[in-house]
Design a protein around this nucleic acid. Sequence first.
DNA 1: CAATGCCGTATTGATAACAAAATCGGTAGA
DNA 2: TCTACCGATTTTGTTATCAATACGGCATTG
Lengths: 226, 226
Amino acid sequence: MHPAMSTKARSTRVDNAYERLKTEILSGQLPPGFQAPEPDIATRLGMSRTPVREALIRLEADGLVDLVPRRGAKVLPISRQDICEIYQILAVLEALAAGTACGKASDEALAEINCVLDGADEALEDQDIEAWAICDDRFHRLVARASGNLRLRAEIEGFLDQVYRANLVLLRLNKAPASNAADHRAIVEAIREGKSDAAAEVARVHRLNGLARMNDLLQHCGLNHV
Amino acid sequence: MHPAMSTKARSTRVDNAYERLKTEILSGQLPPGFQAPEPDIATRLGMSRTPVREALIRLEADGLVDLVPRRGAKVLPISRQDICEIYQILAVLEALAAGTACGKASDEALAEINCVLDGADEALEDQDIEAWAICDDRFHRLVARASGNLRLRAEIEGFLDQVYRANLVLLRLNKAPASNAADHRAIVEAIREGKSDAAAEVARVHRLNGLARMNDLLQHCGLNHV
DNA sequence: CAATGCCGTATTGATAACAAAATCGGTAGA
DNA sequence: TCTACCGATTTTGTTATCAATACGGCATTG
């Protein structure tokens, strides 16, 4: 059976609305602070209010929108406080994921991770920031997946979604993500060699460094939310 | 403004259904494996299907029920695999919470935690397992709250809900939770003294020891899910 | 006797309609 | 001029209903 078949492949309007809205939010097409009443979203998506409502409930659980009565569904901006909270959580979760992946990650999984890292290097040479961002994101998700802990993976991916836009603006302002590639390689190598403590520690400080960079940049630019 | 007014105090049918169903699931009134179609639940709660539906979506996001089309909403049992996954995540999250609480926890918060610990000791002397379980649960939630990280608290509380029933059966089988009180006191003391590393480490091994005990007990009893 | 195809039924996905509640604007009065 | 009240409108919470789909039983056939 195909590995991606585990997730139910039914196509319902709720899933459709959820995916579309989530994509639009993460891409910035629906900017932070944007808000609209349910009927507007429903007509725009070409469906009734109910499926939209259920999709919005899921997006609220994901921490991407805020549902305030009489004020419409609002796309949540990400404050510096939010970023601090999320990065600190991600630091320990990704450390756990990297540590747990030791001895569990299959050769194919490691190969795929290395492939993504190669793609990131290539994008970096080409000065293609967008492509690099995608590779960076995929790397972190692959490590989370390699842990074999389904809940851990889901938690990490949820938080990665929440900080996705913040990473985008960071990238656009900060030209080159310097030490990232070295950290990533070190994590993969540690996983391959079964050094779980080392993998966890590198992953942890990697994320905390990211937090420091993000904080510096936001403070430098005087931004309190994204 | 009243401090507790931040959380919207509206009383809607969805929230009502969510709270009632969650309470019934956690208390075991709706046992694991129980499943019912939406109309039955709706009539039992005295409301229409739609609010029940939205409540069930939230419960599914919480990992408490599974919504399979044509088979009704099913109360999820907790497998040993689930417990392993959750406890490993809780170990790092609660370690982060305990470490972060250092220097942040107010004196009142620490006093409340100590009060709960006193209650736990008292319940232990009285052989009141139920009361002790409540104190134990509240202790962990208070530490999570003391971290000041709202997301961290929400994550921890969500996982505590998921393993709540497993803890109950563990308690009923295993008479006395031996080293628990000492660990708890040690965590509070470390937080009070600002020793964040120590607090984190004690919290971490405390949770991992809990996992080991749970694993032993389940294996001993031949139980694969609760 | 087993297997397969068909039909009735039940459950869910979805829409439309309803009612309540709150917000916004205007108007009147101080 | 500012404030307070009142009504209209908009938005949401909820219900009732419709349609589609999957499941299970039953009969028929090999």
